[in-house]
Structures are given as structure tokens and as C-alpha cells.
């Protein structure tokens, strides 16, 4: 596919280019000329269509960087079923290696360790030209591109800055979780509107509830998520759900009402048809 080739050319070309400030924003992977959408299986269970060409800077953990997958060598990395090129990650510098042409910073964020590598250009003023930063033990935010080199995962480093203050550490731990949840669970649960109108504890209460479902609620939730009725206006009838998961109609009815109370499902044409909020 020609797009993948253009991805290689643009991203690495941009990296070596002069405009380091906006380099990662100008990546035109995917462009507007794709001939369709690509289907990826998301961690949320259901297949979902992700439009190509959505280039964004995603906050991630080191574990997500290490676990990111590729469908083939030239394809972009996939996290939670979504293409990811540029990442932002916060961690502690554990090792620094300066060579003539590259500087390598080994950074750890408690979820994993990964090298961030920068190509040194003698003619350029760079973020790491000062003696005092970055050093081993510094808390840093890294912005770069997930890459592989000799089958080893690393971050092609574009920018690094010090983290100052505990509150940014706290925030940076939770930021990747929020984006992960926004990506893999129904968008309505973690929309920006929710963030705006609720404090952080209330925001995550919903996720506690999806994680603390009773086994029966969980089975219904999973069954509905992949059910073909989910695509129809009237949703699934409780009798159908009961047959499908092999539980009694009354218990399914009760569990569906509980899912509704939790804000995960809603009734449609009558009180016996349910649909998940997606």
C-alpha cells in the first residue's frame, strides 16, 4: 500500500529535518487519500472501524509502548486497536549514554523500561545540550515516535522536558489510563463532557462499576456487546439474551435493570428490550 511507504518517508525525513519544533505534527501518514477504513480488533472486544490518517499525540505508559503491535513491518504500531505514531510518556531517567551521533536515555515509569534515542546534530541547539539536564534520576516527559531497531522497541526522541512537581507525576500516571478507557469502552462513559462536569473520582466511578459487575451482569454485558441486535434500534429482547447465555429470564431481567441503573444499558421499545450504551 502506497500510504505505508509515504509514512516511512515522511516520519523519518521529518525527524532529521530542520524544524524539530513542529516535526511530529507535520507527519502526514494516511493522508486524505486512503481508499477506505481499516478494521482492527480492539481490546474492547467488538471490532470497530478506525479511520486512517488520525495522527495524534497519545499519552501512554512504557508497558503500552512495549506491548504495541504491528500487522506487518511497514505498518504503524497499534495500541488498543488504534494506530499510534507519536507518544508522550513520563518516567524517570535510569541511564544516559552519549555517543557521537546519538544520545540514548533509558527511562522507566514503573510499568516498564524503554530506551529513548535521539540523533545528535552538532549544528543545532538541542534540549539536552545543558550539563544539568537530563541526568540519571530526573523525572521527564518524553515526546517521540514508537520505533523498532534491530527488533528492539525504542522511542525516537523528539523532545524531552523535566517534570516539576508531584502533581504532574500524579496526573501523568492517570492520563494514559483515561485515554485507554476512552478508546476501549463506550465513548459516552468517558466523554470530555464527563471530565468537565465531574471531579476525578466521579469520573472513574463508572469504570469501577464496569469492572465490578456481577458474573451474570458481565456475561450479559459481553453478550450484548457482540450481539447483532446491538446494531438495531430495538436492541435485544431479554428472552433472547436469557437463551443465549443460558440463564433464567427473571435473573436476566433483574441484571439488565441493574446494568441500566449503572448507566451501561437502556431500555428501548418496551421494558423487555435492552441495548448497551455505546
Amino acid at each position: 500500500m502506497s500510504n505505508y511507504n509515504s509514512y516511512d518517508g515522511n516520519s523519518y525525513g521529518g525527524y532529521g529535518g530542520g524544524d524539530t519544533g513542529g516535526g511530529y505534527m507535520t507527519n502526514s501518514y494516511g493522508g486524505g487519500d486512503t481508499n477506505g477504513d481499516v478494521k482492527y480488533s480492539s481490546q474492547g472486544g467488538a471490532d470497530r472501524t478506525i479511520p486512517e490518517g488520525k495522527t495524534r499525540l497519545r499519552p501512554v505508559t512504557m508497558k503500552q509502548i512495549i506491548d504495541a503491535t504491528k500487522t506487518h513491518d511497514d505498518a504503524p504500531f497499534i495500541i488498543d486497536g488504534v494506530e499510534v505514531i507519536n507518544v508522550s510518556v513520563v518516567g524517570i531517567v535510569r541511564n544516559v549514554t552519549h555517543a557521537t551521533t546519538t544520545s540514548t536515555y533509558r527511562v522507566e515509569d514503573s510499568t516498564g523500561m524503554c530506551d529513548a534515542r535521539k540523533i545528535n546534530r552538532p549544528d543545532e541547539q538541542d534540549f539536552d545540550r545543558s550539563e544539568s539536564f537530563p541526568r540519571v534520576g530526573d523525572y521527564v516527559r518524553i515526546i517521540g515516535e514508537i520505533s523498532n531497531f534491530n527488533d528492539k522497541r525504542y522511542i525516537a526522541l523528539r523532545h524531552m522536558r523535566p517534570i516539576t512537581g508531584l502533581d504532574e507525576v500524579t496526573f501523568s500516571v492517570l492520563e494514559p489510563l483515561l485515554v485507554h478507557l476512552q478508546t476501549v469502552v463506550p465513548s459516552s462513559l468517558y466523554s470530555t463532557a464527563d471530565v468537565a462536569k465531574s471531579n476525578s473520582s466521579a469520573l472513574f466511578t463508572t469504570s469501577y462499576e464496569t469492572e465490578s459487575l456481577t458474573p451474570l451482569q458481565r456475561r450479559i454485558f459481553d453478550a450484548l456487546k457482540t450481539a447483532e441486535e446491538q446494531d438495531m434500534n430495538e436492541g435485544a429482547h431479554i428472552g433472547v439474551i436469557a437463551d443465549r447465555i443460558g440463564a433464567s429470564r427473571n435473573s436476566v431481567m433483574a441484571a439488565c435493570e441493574e446494568l441500566t441503573d449503572l448507566g451501561l444499558a437502556y431500555t428501548t421499545v418496551d421494558f423487555e428490550h435492552f441495548k448497551l450504551i455505546m
Binding site: K63, L166, T170, V173, F204, S207
Partner: peptide, 23 residues
């Protein structure tokens, strides 16, 4: 300086979402 209440809330969330953070 720094809000320890938020830190402890963060730790609670990390522990609730252990599979997301840790292998």
C-alpha cells in the same frame, strides 16, 4: 508541595486497573 490525596487516589486507580499498568 503536592496533593497527597490525589496521589492516594491515583494509587487506588492503578491498583484497580492493575492489568492495564503491569505485566
Amino acid at each position: 508541595d503536592g496533593n497527597m490525596d490525589n496521589v492516594n487516589k491515583m494509587v487506588e486507580l492503578v491498583q484497580r486497573h492493575k492489568a492495564f499498568y503491569y505485566n
